[in-house]
């Protein structure tokens, strides 16, 4: 099966691919580099060699209290993911293992709720949040992101669960396993990888959600998306600091993303592309 490839053409392809890849990656790379420059260096033309100062990181924390929005992001994205899993796991489970004629329709309907534009319900949600005292609270935002991502979580889990052969569950039943031991010893170990991937992907989606997180918070519950967006109002030149804040905001998710890129394709295409 291995095709003969001349070293020459291989090198040519390698150069082309790396050039394109670096071009695409450049804005991120440049941000990271700029975060280690002084503000004066940052605006002094293209330079790929920073002076290596950590001052920006120190200042982002000391002046803007970076840690607070960071914790908000963690709590909200992890919290909403766990909440969504809690609701979605039984649903996806039953759809995968006891499908009815309507299962497909229900799944499609769930996906269609994702089609509803967020702005269309901005006003009522804003009013409900205002009247319920939920504006700028972690709880409110967590519930919001749970609802937003629930359809995707159900879908992802469904596609993972569907691949667990039903015969194995029947075998467990024949082997005398009660419902509890069936779930404990057979289902859970087989479902854990799928649940873990779903969790990872959903944390990424929740971390980066940038409509509700910006609109429903001001200061107390503002996660990193809102924190970074607040840099858009001009306050003089602060690019090195902006770069430092950006680097901190994207680094954890970038690393998680690199680890989950295989599952990302499966998960986000609902198993349609593997």
């Amino acid at each position: 099966m291995a095709r003969r490839v001349s070293t020459q053409s291989r090198i040519a392809w390698t150069i082309a691919a790396w050039a394109v890849a670096l071009l695409i990656f450049f804005p991120i790379l440049y941000t990271v580099l700029t975060s280690f420059k002084t503000e004066a260096e940052a605006i002094a033309g293209i330079s790929l060699i920073p002076s290596g100062t950590f001052e920006n990181y120190v200042e982002v924390q000391s002046q803007r209290d970076y840690f607070k929005p960071f914790m908000n992001s963690v709590v909200i994205s992890v919290g909403s993911t766990l909440l969504a899993l809690l609701v979605a796991i039984p649903a996806a489970w039953s759809m995968a293992f006891s499908p009815t004629r309507r299962t497909k329709d229900i799944l499609m309907w769930m996906l269609s709720t994702k089609m509803m534009p967020a702005v269309a319900v901005l006003v009522p949600i804003y009013l409900i949040f205002r009247d319920g005292g939920l504006l700028d609270t972690r709880i409110g935002l967590t519930v919001m992101l749970t609802l937003i991502n629930l359809p995707i979580v159900v879908w992802m889990l469904y596609t993972y669960f569907r691949e667990i052969p039903g015969e194995i569950l029947e075998a467990a039943r024949m082997d005398g396993a009660s419902l509890v031991s069936e779930i404990l010893y057979v289902l859970t170990p087989m479902a854990v990888p799928g649940i873990a991937s779903t969790m990872l992907l959903n944390i990424i989606l929740a971390w980066n959600e940038s409509f509700w997180t910006i609109r429903l918070t001001t200061t107390n519950a503002a996660p990193l998306t809102a924190f970074i967006a607040s840099f858009s109002s001009p306050q003089g030149l602060f690019w090195a600091k902006l770069s430092a804040a950006s680097t901190l905001a994207i680094a954890p998710i970038l690393i998680m993303g690199w680890f989950s890129q295989r599952q990302l394709v499966r998960g986000l295409t609902f198993g349609a592309v593997k």
Binding site: E167, R173, G176
Partner: peptide, 20 residues
């Protein structure tokens, strides 16, 4: 009666072994 109570054992086409 539930399958477990019938005292039967079954061998499946796909073997249905527990992969983990």
């Amino acid at each position: 009666e539930a399958p477990a109570r019938r005292g039967l054992a079954m061998v499946f086409q796909s073997y249905a072994l527990y992969p983990h």
